[in-house]
């Protein structure tokens, strides 16, 4: 294993994405809806983040509801028999319950068999490449032949409506990806890393089990983001992550068909792409329409901007998830023609 500074690297052979479906709630929230509250601040924030519209879930809709709708569609489109699915991983920071794990609840609602592996992982911005790696590991170790990876968040419910920096940034979405073994699928590379030293910079201080830290803060039970610190972290971590992924995979900028960055904000993604000298046309950005959907940004890019391409062609994708934790993950993954890659509305 070559020593790289950005994280643990690992590769897997013969793992393929069979298909994916992303699901967004129907309610479109326009920037104009914030004008009464933030006035000219809306334009300032929009210039930086690039978010024009976002989708917000109704109060009775959770991330697992979005993922369940996506999963039903995906299983149907792929023609997978429910009892051929061996594992369900749900990655979210807005699960249905404190306990039990939401993945268990979803197992029953999807009618999957009782013998499956099902668990939740708590990650945000780094969730998708982490999840692909975890799914690949289950497949590679023989623990599973077919895996469903569900990622999703309803961040709209945890943002501070008084804080224009976050109130307008986040959107809600869920996405489910079907993975299976396929001899000859090629090699996937992953890099994973963590730095809890920055945990305070993107956090909900109150609401779980550490208490008393939010005293003196305006809304401690809502999302707090130190935008400057997050930006600094990103600038430091992500360019190295890009370089290291190219190095460990042996596939450089030319060998990848698209570079999928966690959709944190438009300015940041453009800056990262420029810094890494990536061709702009290979760096899709859809945060303008959906906002930052946390764990779901990358699969939402795949299902939306790349949907047709992924169905029609074989590709190699580079993915970079980074943020809350801090936690980061990168993937270089070949795709065969996907059986399904689309966005649905709940």
């Amino acid at each position: 294993m070559p020593q790289i500074s950005s994280g643990q690297s690992v590769c897997f052979d013969d793992i393929t994405i069979a298909g994916l479906v992303a699901c967004v709630p129907p309610r479109v929230v326009e920037n104009s809806e914030f004008e009464a509250q933030f006035g000219s601040g809306v334009a300032d924030v929009t210039k930086m983040t690039g978010v024009q519209t976002r989708r917000w879930a109704d109060d009775d809709v959770t991330a697992s509801d979005l993922c369940l709708a996506a999963a039903h569609k995906l299983i149907d489109q792929l023609g997978w028999e429910a009892d051929t699915i061996d594992a369900l991983i749900f990655i979210s920071q807005t699960p249905d319950y404190r306990l039990p794990a939401t993945a268990c609840v979803m197992q029953a609602k999807l009618g999957l068999r009782k013998g499956i592996i099902a668990f939740d992982v708590n990650l945000g911005c780094s969730a998708y490449p982490y999840g692909l790696w975890l799914a690949s590991m289950l497949l590679s170790s023989g623990s599973a032949e077919r895996v469903l990876l569900a990622v999703g968040d309803t961040s709209s419910r945890v943002v501070d409506s008084q804080d224009r920096a976050t109130a307008m940034l986040f959107g809600d979405a869920g996405a489910v990806t079907a993975l299976e073994k396929l001899p000859g699928a090629g090699r996937s590379h992953f890099i994973l890393g963590s730095d809890g030293g920055g945990f305070q910079n993107l956090i909900i201080r109150e609401g779980a089990f550490r208490t008393g830290e939010g005293e003196g803060q305006p809304t401690p039970s809502k999302l707090f983001m130190d935008g400057g610190e997050i930006f600094n972290f990103t600038l430091k971590a992500v360019p190295t992550l890009v370089k290291d992924l190219f190095e460990v995979s042996g596939f450089g900028s030319d060998h990848h068909d698209a570079f999928l960055f966690h959709q944190a904000n438009t300015f940041m993604i453009n800056h990262l792409a420029k810094k890494a000298k990536l061709p702009q046309e290979k760096v899709p950005i859809n945060i303008g329409r959906y906002g930052n959907t946390s764990s779901a940004t990358i699969p939402l890019l795949m299902a939306d901007d790349l949907g047709q391409t992924l169905v029609d062609q074989e590709t190699r994708l580079a993915m970079f998830g980074f943020g809350v934790g801090y936690s980061w993950a990168a993937a270089s993954m070949p795709t065969q023609k996907l059986g399904c890659a689309e966005v649905i509305c709940l």
């Binding site: 708590n122 909900i204 934790g325």
Partner: peptide, 29 residues
């Protein structure tokens, strides 16, 4: 019973124990 809704407690543990940053870390529920 994590410390926060987010971030994940495993990342905070990495830092508290002084472990390297080039390691993976996550919570499972």
């Amino acid at each position: 019973a994590p410390d926060y809704i987010l971030p994940t407690s495993a990342c905070i543990l990495q830092h508290a124990l002084g472990l390297r940053t080039s390691i993976g870390a996550f919570d499972i529920n």
